[in-house]
């Protein structure tokens, strides 16, 4: 499989209430091994997936939010987040977990994986993909 495609994972659902966020993350982790050009988009309730301070002890479910922070190690370094979706929910980027990666082309400098995008930028982002996986 030498062919490389642009994959976009569209996350539109909140974590814990349904399993979609967790199982979508599992696809991202497996997909990372296929050396495709991978991007994540968090839009609508999907932005709740990467809110910091998640503590699931009380609901006895697995807190999978730390996995998002580890995605940089899997060379998943482009996490697009909808500006409007944050605003609609009374959130700012400061409410999100810091998601970073080490850029091997820049002496392993730590860089931000989160890219804030507006509606038009999301429309353009979707158009440039080869495959869109929606959860």
């Amino acid at each position: 499989m030498s062919e490389s495609k642009k994959f976009l994972y569209v996350n539109r659902k909140a974590p814990y209430g349904t399993v979609y966020a967790l199982e979508s993350l599992e696809v991202v982790l497996i997909g990372a091994a296929f050396e495709q050009d991978v991007q994540l988009l968090f839009v609508d309730d999907g932005v709740f997936q990467i809110v910091k301070g998640q503590d699931t002890k009380g609901i006895e479910m697995k807190n999978f939010s730390p996995t998002y922070s580890a995605l940089g190690d899997y060379e998943v370094t482009k996490m697009y987040v909808s500006k409007e979706s944050l605003e609609e929910r009374g959130l700012t980027v400061d409410d999100l977990m810091p998601l970073t990666y080490e850029d091997e082309d820049d002496d392993w400098a730590e860089k931000d994986s989160i890219i804030l995008v507006n509606k038009d930028e999301i429309a353009a982002l979707m158009e440039e993909q080869d495959v869109v996986l929606s959860f």
Partner: peptide
């Protein structure tokens, strides 16, 4: 659900 509205807003 807001799926239709979100789609209309994000479709090029």
């Amino acid at each position: 659900k807001n799926s239709l509205v979100s789609c209309l807003e994000h479709a090029a």
